[in-house]
Amino acid sequence: MAGTSANEQLFDHLVRAETRLYNAVGERLKAEHGIVASQFEFLRYLERHPRSRVADLAVHFAVGIGATSKGIDRLETRGWVRRAPNPEDRRSSLVELTPPGRDLAAAAGETFRAELAALIGSALGEEQAAAVIPVLAALRGALEERNAGLPAG
């Protein structure tokens, strides 16, 4: 990529790699579990952070609250999550996995890890992948600190 800065090259590689990874993981999750990648991410988050608010998910994934709430509605319709009253704030609810949601998160998690091993592990190996983590974590942290890229609604 002659004539382009390191930042431009990094952006291009990050975005294209992320898009391909997300699509490939999503295709595998859809084929094996009938869910898309964004649904899996919500389930996985709730597995690790039980009784979260919709706003917590929205901030974590840098997605609007309206879109996050609709995503939770879809999971609730399928019986994978439920909303419970938030004792600290009557205007919000807490979202948690149901038993079928926990089962799905666990099964899809195995598929997710296997697909990452096939896609990332086979290309980079554990050592190279581990070396990239601090760099991406620092970039993500700086962006989060600035609230860069958060949707307005």
Rank of each mutant, 00 (worst) to 15 (best):
A106C: 05
P100D: 08
V132C: 01
I120P: 08
S92R: 05
V135Q: 03
E127V: 12
A131E: 10
L94D: 07
W80M: 11
L116R: 08
E115V: 10
G79A: 03
G66F: 13
G101K: 04
E115G: 00
G71M: 09
A84P: 01
R91Q: 02
T68G: 15
E126F: 11
N86R: 08
L75N: 12
E127F: 03
A107G: 01
G141F: 15
R90D: 13
W80P: 08
A142S: 05
E145V: 04
G79D: 03
S92N: 11
E145Y: 08
V132S: 00
G153N: 12
F112I: 02
E126H: 14
R90Q: 15
I133M: 02
W80T: 03
G109F: 06
R91F: 15
G109I: 05
G109Q: 07
A137F: 10
A138V: 02
P85A: 13
L143G: 09
S92C: 02
A130S: 14
R91S: 14
G141H: 14
R82K: 08
R83T: 11
L75M: 06
D89N: 10
G79M: 07
T98L: 03
A137V: 11
R90P: 12
G101E: 10
R146P: 13
L75T: 10
D89V: 10
D89H: 07
L97W: 13
A106V: 10
P87F: 07
P87G: 06
E144Q: 13
A84M: 06
I72Y: 00
G64C: 14
P85H: 10
L119S: 02
A67H: 03
E144L: 11
I120A: 07
K70Y: 10
P87A: 03
A130G: 01
R78I: 06
A118F: 00
S122T: 08
R90N: 10
D89I: 05
V81Y: 11
R90Y: 03
L104N: 04
F112P: 00
T68C: 14
K70M: 11
